[in-house]
Nucleic acid binder design. Sequence first.
DNA 1: TAAGTGATGCAT
DNA 2: TGCATCACTTAA
Length: 201
Amino acid sequence: MTTLACMERRFFEPDAAQVAAALLGHYLVVGHGDSLRGGLIVETEAYRVDDPASHGFRGETARNRSMFGEPGTAYVYFIYGNHHCVNVVCRERGLAEAVLIRALAPRFGMEAMRRCRRGLPDRQWTSGPGKLCAALGIDRSHDGLDLCDSTSAVRLARHPNVAEARREQGPIVSGPRVGISKAATWPLRFRLAGSVFCSGR
DNA sequence: TAAGTGATGCAT
DNA sequence: TGCATCACTTAA
């Protein structure tokens, strides 16, 4: 794909709910040497600064430090002893807001993703926040990367025709978050409801 | 439906 | 130091 321009930083200055919706239909990609893996974002979840479910709610620690960084920073955490999840930091430095990338429609590096997902069917490669990190090879070593920098291993890229992508895979719907015990009913989960690659939890 | 996995954070 | 919790996945 020749048209993979990185998102500009100001894209991530609004609050996490706005950014979570705005990211749908754009790309998350990871460079591995000369090759690329990634896909189209079809599901996101917002975590707000006043949000008891957010890792940043109780203040800055070694684990969540990058949540307090510049908008467009990657926050990657390790959970349940097995899985990594990747977030995009929003709002200005010092305010912990972030968007969890929950699911992708696979687009680039299909064979590499198939291998990393043990030969499972494509619908199971990236249809969950831990799955997509496994498929793309994202881990804590990517925590704190600038997702707006075209030289970063992990980055976010603008879809040249995001309106069309949303038409094809929409509509955009929002609803309760999943997998959390606090403030789960806040309608901060967003997805392209026509995509078969949503996590379905 | 439940087990597994290990880091994290708060209580002790 | 101990222990409950955890923004998940897989096997059953």
